[in-house]
Structure formats: C-alpha cells, structure tokens
Design a protein around this nucleic acid. Sequence first.
DNA 1: CTGAAAGCGCTAACAA
DNA 2: TTGTTAGCGCTTTCAG
Lengths: 347, 347
Amino acid sequence: MEGNRRSARHSPGNVTIQDVAARAGVSTATVSRTLANPEVVSATTRERVLRAVEATGYTPNVAARNLRARRSMMILVIVPNVASPFIAEVLRGIDDELVLSGYDMIIGNLDNLVEREARYVKLVQSGQVDGVMITSGRIPGDGDRSMADLGVPMAAVCAAVPGLTAPHVTVDDRQASIDVATHFLEFGHRRFGYISGPAGNVNEIDRYDGFKEGLRQGGVGAKDLTYWPGHFNLRAGVDAAEDFLTLEAPPTAIYAACDEAAISFMKTVISAGRRVPEDVSVVGFDGIDVARFVRPTLTTVHQPRYELGRTGAQALLKAIAGLEVEEPVVRLAAPLIQGASSGPAPV
Amino acid sequence: MEGNRRSARHSPGNVTIQDVAARAGVSTATVSRTLANPEVVSATTRERVLRAVEATGYTPNVAARNLRARRSMMILVIVPNVASPFIAEVLRGIDDELVLSGYDMIIGNLDNLVEREARYVKLVQSGQVDGVMITSGRIPGDGDRSMADLGVPMAAVCAAVPGLTAPHVTVDDRQASIDVATHFLEFGHRRFGYISGPAGNVNEIDRYDGFKEGLRQGGVGAKDLTYWPGHFNLRAGVDAAEDFLTLEAPPTAIYAACDEAAISFMKTVISAGRRVPEDVSVVGFDGIDVARFVRPTLTTVHQPRYELGRTGAQALLKAIAGLEVEEPVVRLAAPLIQGASSGPAPV
DNA sequence: CTGAAAGCGCTAACAA
DNA sequence: TTGTTAGCGCTTTCAG
C-alpha cells in the first residue's frame, strides 16, 4: 500500500513489476503476460507495457521468478580442477551452448579433493540449479547422499561416470591408449614407461588398461612396463623423469596420461642430456594447445575438448527439457596426432 | 481471502520448512530460527527441530530464501577468456576464498567479445548475484547501462578498471615492463620487439607503455622497437615470429605481453634455425606453469595468480559486508624470473 | 483480452 | 522463547 521506493540496500532492480504495471495503467498480470507471451495481449496494451518497461528499465527479479517457476536457469558444472588447461576449453564449449538457451553456469571446483563434493550436493539439493554436468568421472556425494538420488538432470562429459544413467559424451580412452601402444610397437620399441593419473580416476584406469592391452597384443608383458604414479599435472612428469634417469636399462617409449606430464618429463630428461625422440619417445594425452609449441612438438591423443563440452551441454539441456536424448552415449573421436616427440626405437 | 492450508502436495522429494515444522510440532518460524540462530531457541526445541530436519532430509529452498533475504550468496566473476591458463589459477584463488564464506561463483566468460557483456549486466540487474569480480579491465555494459550503475558491490583483479571506484588487486604491469626493458638493456640489447595484447586492453597499454618507458630511459627510441599486434594467445607469437623471420636486421630482444605468445614465438623461430637466447632473447609475462617446462625455460614476469584471486575475493567479500576495505588498492609484487630464454645480445 | 487473487518457500517484525 | 502475520516479486488459474 505504500509507495516505498528505493528502500533496499544494494539490491539493483529497484523497479518491480508493480512499477511497470502502474506506469502502464494495467495489472501486474498483464505485464507478466506481455513479457512471457506477447501474442496473448492486445497490440495496444503490449505497446503500452513495453514502453513502460523501457522507461523504467525494468528487469524481472530472478529469485521471485525462480521461486514461482521452480527453475533457476543455472547449470552446475563439476570440474576436478578449474586450473587445468584441459578443462578450460571444455568449459568454453559448455558455456557457448548454454548461452544459446539462456542458461548460466556455476563452477563446482573440486580441486581434486573428494571432500569438496559435499558443498555441491547441498547446492543441488537446495534447488539452485536445473542440471548438473559432471566432468570428474564420479557422482558427487557427501557420505549420506549421492547427487544421483536428488532427481536433478545430469550429464557426464570427458569421463564416464560408473553407475550413472545419464547422457555421456566422452572419447574412448581405452582404444586411444591401445593406439598409442601400437604406435610405439610399430616403431620397434620393447621397453615402456607409463606416467599415471590419479589412482582410481576413471580416465586413468581406461588409459592404463588400454595401454597394457595394446602392449599385450604386441607380446609385451608387465616386466617391460615401468609404472610411475602421478596426478594429471606437471609434477608427475618431473617425478617420473627423475626415476627414469636412474634406471640402468630405461624404457625407450613413455606414455603419459596427460600432456602436462609428458611435457615436463621431456624437459627434465632433455636437461639431463637425453635426446627425444632419439633416446626416448614420449606420447601424451589431451592435445592441449601448448603441446604444439614445446620442443620437440608433442605426439598426443587429441581430445576434441570444445566439442566434448558443447555436445555434453546439448545433451543436458535436452534432458532438462524432458526430451528423449536420442543418443545417450556419444563417443567422439580422439586421434593420435603425430608430433616430433616419438619415433623409432634406438638401435 | 483465507490462507488456504495445503500441507503435503509438493513435487516429490521436495520437503519444505512446513513439513519439518509439522513433524517437530513447532511453527515454521521456529524451524527457520533454529537453522539461522540456534542459540535463540531452547535446547529441547532445537533438538526436536534438528531431529525433524534430519529425518526429513530438509534443505532450505534457496530461491525462497534469496527472495526474502535479498541476497543470493553468488558472485559473478567476469573473465575475458575462461580457456586462458592465466585466469584459471586466479579462479582457483577466488573460489578458495569464497567457499570460506559460503559463496559460490558464476563464471561470466566474455570469450574476448564485448558483445557478451550485456548478458551479465542483465544477470546482475536481475538480482542474481551479491557481488561482481572483474578480471577483464572493463566495466561491463550493454550500450545503455553500465554495470557500475547497478549499485552492486564490485572488485577488480588482474587489471585495473578505468573509472571504477572499487577495491583493486593487481600487479604493477607498467613497472614490471620497465624492469623487462632494463633487463634487456643490461644485456646490451639495442633492437627490440614487442608482441602486443589486444588493442585497448588495460594490461596491454600498461605493458607497452612501461616497456617503451624503460627503453627510453636507456636511450632507445621508437625506430628500434618493432611492434607486433596480437591477442594474449599462442597465435600472436606465431604471427610475430613469421614477420620477425623476414627482417633484415631483426630485433635481438623480444618482449611478449603474455607467456603463450612468448612460447610460440620461441618455438617458431627456433624451428626456423634461430637460437634462443644466442640470436634472440625472449621474455614473457604471467609466469604460467608451463613456462618452466619449455626449452629454453622462459624468462617471465611472474604474476601471483592464486594470490591475486584470493586477495581480490577477500576485498569483494568485505565490500559486500559493507565493511570498509582498508586498502582499496593493493599491488602485489610481480618479479621478473630469469629463465634461459634471455641473455647477452649477440656480438 | 484483462484483472483479481492465491500463493511459490522462506524470514522477520511484532506479539504473546 | 515461541507463534502469528505479513509479505519478498513474480506467475497463473479463474472469473469477468
């Protein structure tokens, strides 16, 4: 009843639907309709309302709209580590797709810590997002609850999520890794090294398994494969290299589960006097941009990062709309890009 | 007229404060208090309420809470390009600080496109965020409105925002660039090249100005400084290198406004047979992780990326809380880290 | 085609 | 200490 104007503190959008209605001389319902379904109001009314909107600079309050409409136009994107160059390009793909449908994204950065998942379970349960994109290969949980039990639409990209029945968009890590083994074998290598990602990670498991499988097909067994633990980062390559340099008969072909590790491995062994690829061949995974600008240029499994994000977002939006996702599991191609870091085994 | 009471008819899985109140035999107000200010309710009541919360698995609906409380617990972070390795680590710092206060972040990715700003002006105006962190060096606008006129608390990191009266956390791009010039001059260089960032960008302006100033102090004028346009990306270094390779008397010292350009420049000229640093010295800006793993290791201005994000977030949270920000402009140190890519001028 | 009115789920005065 | 009572700003029947 009171024309209490600009009483709020920081709140922007001081102008409400009431103000517009008053100015246009119509009811708030009509303003709402004009904005949501312009075709159901008369041309003259529409004109008046739009003019009032213009004059007042009205923007609907989203909290109110969300409360009423029971949706938020927000997507939660769970990422293992926001600082990874791999994920950054995936995010760009996701965002480019979401913007087309008017969605925005909240970043759920786990920083590689499982404890961080609980925060996002809560976020979802509190109804703040309409959907969740998972890039971490795990369904976030908080001990009691799993995010999968909350009934929110989900989709997985980059990594298959065990036990999740939702659209998936990934590459075939396993097959790509078999290809890497084949690549090495064709070059005559017989002793191999593998720089791992985090233990238990879905991508890691597939890459290691695939590599072993590919080697097995070439008659290479466990005793000719050195395993170095790591974490999808630069550090992993340094650690592996330091061990590598101590070996009597070191591997001649190294497969790193991510490009960062491959790059730092190369740098470290080259600084110690080894030659790449003459003494040791190196292959990475991901195809991050900078892989083409290190020396030697890195041979790597190229993931279509932008497309992974974009396709995954499309699937999620369909799921949110309640549409059938016609192809719930999409596998994008991940070709092995030959660089200068891999070649014939030393004689 | 009568407030008609509907107790249990919500979408399945959505337990409301009503359900909890009913189960605990108290009013909704008491439930609300118990959760917000546990100390004001009696121990027994608190106990009963908490048990009911537990039993029902209740989580407050955030849209309703936001509508009422006029806040969203969300921060909008405007970034020029999510896919940049520089910004990723800044985001990590921001997020680590926000999580401590219960805030989450929405990423506003401009993808280096000014047109994308309008989307976020709208987001802010619709009351969806409590504060805005700007890393783009510009106040987002949509032609009519500027985000600064919306009355939302803001803070700027990484780049000073002209005309914005809000806390700033940056490094001194200009002084750091003077340092780069000095570094080159001490090594006896007399012909210089500069690989630019996007025209008009605040950081770019400061870096270029600072570099020119440093050279001027050493008696070097415009005719001994080659300028190559670019965009804070790998492409810029390739383009610059291709031109560089055509020059009769090329510069012997190259300053790139970002590490990516420095890295790709090195790679390109080395592939063409030039030696770094014997023929040409290269210095970058940012200190991204991979700069330590290219060959030669890059000499670069090291920005404390994580700290920039973290400190900026602290300032923003204070501004949101209405507290005085005691130091509205913070300058963090950005030391020049000597790598192997810069050295004495060729004789 | 338009308006009145009932809430979405929650919090904050104000009483009791 | 607790309950009652108003809404936050919007959408959406249901009448007219």
